[in-house]
Design a binder for these strands. Sequence first.
DNA 1: CTGAAAGCGCTTACAG
DNA 2: CTGAAAGCGCTTACAG
Lengths: 363, 363
Amino acid sequence: MGRGTGRATQADVARLAGVSQATVSLILNGGETGRRRVGEQARQRVLDAIQMTGYVANPAAQRLAGGRTRIVGVFTYEPVFPRDSRDFYHPFLIGVEAQAEALGCDLLFFTGTPSSQGRQRLLGDGSYRLGIADGCVLLGRYDDKRDLADLLGRDFPFAFIGRRESAAGPVPYVGADYLTATRKVVELLFALGHERVGFLGDLRRDEPSVDRAQGYHESVRAAGRRPVVLDGTGLSGGEALDLLGDNGLTAAVIWPSGLAPAIRAAALARGLSVPGDLSLAQLGDAESETPDDVEWTGFRIPREEMGAAAVRLLYEQLVSATPLTADALQRSLPCTVLTGTTAGPPTASASGSSARPPSRSAG
Amino acid sequence: MGRGTGRATQADVARLAGVSQATVSLILNGGETGRRRVGEQARQRVLDAIQMTGYVANPAAQRLAGGRTRIVGVFTYEPVFPRDSRDFYHPFLIGVEAQAEALGCDLLFFTGTPSSQGRQRLLGDGSYRLGIADGCVLLGRYDDKRDLADLLGRDFPFAFIGRRESAAGPVPYVGADYLTATRKVVELLFALGHERVGFLGDLRRDEPSVDRAQGYHESVRAAGRRPVVLDGTGLSGGEALDLLGDNGLTAAVIWPSGLAPAIRAAALARGLSVPGDLSLAQLGDAESETPDDVEWTGFRIPREEMGAAAVRLLYEQLVSATPLTADALQRSLPCTVLTGTTAGPPTASASGSSARPPSRSAG
DNA sequence: CTGAAAGCGCTTACAG
DNA sequence: CTGAAAGCGCTTACAG
């Protein structure tokens, strides 16, 4: 196999149709020009020959010659089809697939890239296979700053799903406006009458965390209150609940969202009511359809729309005659605030120590 | 775009190192030969030059010169990433992805193919795009006999997930041995002491249905009993339950599996017990992790393994010097029998009319 | 042992 | 309006 697989080439088609190979190419992708330049007769003969031979363009050759392949690359740092049911990528990929189909593009997943330590490295040891695609959509919670700089250094269009920053220049991305969404959710809690609204979560430096923290601070400041930021890293639901109680909080926004159900469960287990005694909000809907059938207060991340928009951003870069401005390269989609049922007005009884009933000894 | 991107080429490296371009290529991928053939001095100079220029091989050129693309095509008749949660393809694709990664192959999904009536047509006018890959794995409940014949007619390696038959010749596939699995499940029910075991389901002519029906008949015959085959097409759980009762059945195998939970629910609603009054078995585990938390008697379809085996079958065709025999092209994987909790020995009270208590008037 | 050359299958200027 | 030719960046026979 390999060499001369018997696949028909433009030359084969040309021979059969009695035209030159270049003419076949022209008919296939000359567009308006091709239509004018080639006679209808020859055109028909070529089309017939294509049918007969089952000719399919070789994308490697197309690419090498400077053409487009109509293949959109998709790079994920973890398997696209995870074995466990928690499927982080799926909602984004629904949008990616739909938009690709709308543009008549196929989707190439770079599963073959050698992975190191269970994670794929995008570039690296020269075996980069990206180039066969017209461009690439990237997604994943993890990202390598070196990859980012490498990518920017090359002349290869790409688009991240999720905001990314790099010192090497403006990274093309479609993000979600977590900052505004967080502001609105915190404002909602203040509007319900809470005196203090806490921020409990992982205090990380990645973009999604930073955006939420900033949104929180802005809204607290705007409300003329003092921020209460609590580090929830590694805490169990019960421990997190204690922390909220210790700080006399009647309301808190939780990040990442996965911690929120555990806190709620711990609260219920202690005979507290949510939102009666404690209002909770998630800063973003969890990936899976909430298995706890609770309508969480918080906001919805427009994952499907982000996937579709990333493919569009990629294609705009391809089509644009001039490089896109930083402004055009970086897009944020709005999140939808979810009123939900886990936040409500504070009750009289819900004061500082309410979250920690006296019957329970300090841990 | 694309043209003269300023990326360093082997020619650039060669110039800098004072060797020929071919020598650069040799050093890069000549392996053992290259090591012997090129002097250590030149070798070092080339390596340095690669460092300096940041040279990375152009994959399109590599492929064009080399032949194989190491791209495995994947064709599904419906979206790969469905919007609703019932995800038929996912379990198969876990295996496909894992095997592709193991072989160092990327995965190309043909989303760009024009669809008609919501369903993708494999070939037809858009047949173009298949050839991009080295071969193609196909999956989907639906299949078009014309596509099958077309595919067999071309010199393009492929492999179906799920048994397929065509008058045009042996179709390469990796199926599951539904026949044997069905036999075993029916035998299990007989072994539990049931006098009669019914087959209730869609009586279709597609391969998965035919295999199960045949397995049922074989095991009934082997047990020296009479078959009771009931058409359950379009029935509600209650109606299906009536049908079983009318035929005096204490045990039945259900196909497709989706009907089984409805029958069980109807039985429970009428105060019957499963398996006390009625033993039920599914002929294949449902796609989704059973949302009804019941451990069904029946068998498990090795979906993941099927996906992986299909990719392997594809590559064996590519690698093999001679065409594979029909025997090698068509593979069946065994299913695992699940004892489950929905089948048990018949009770004395469980006789003909038990499934239909007298309190209920005929429908 | 080494370098020069052919060729992979395309696209797109470029001559007739 | 059309065809012949150059060239994309590689790999791998093939001559010296």
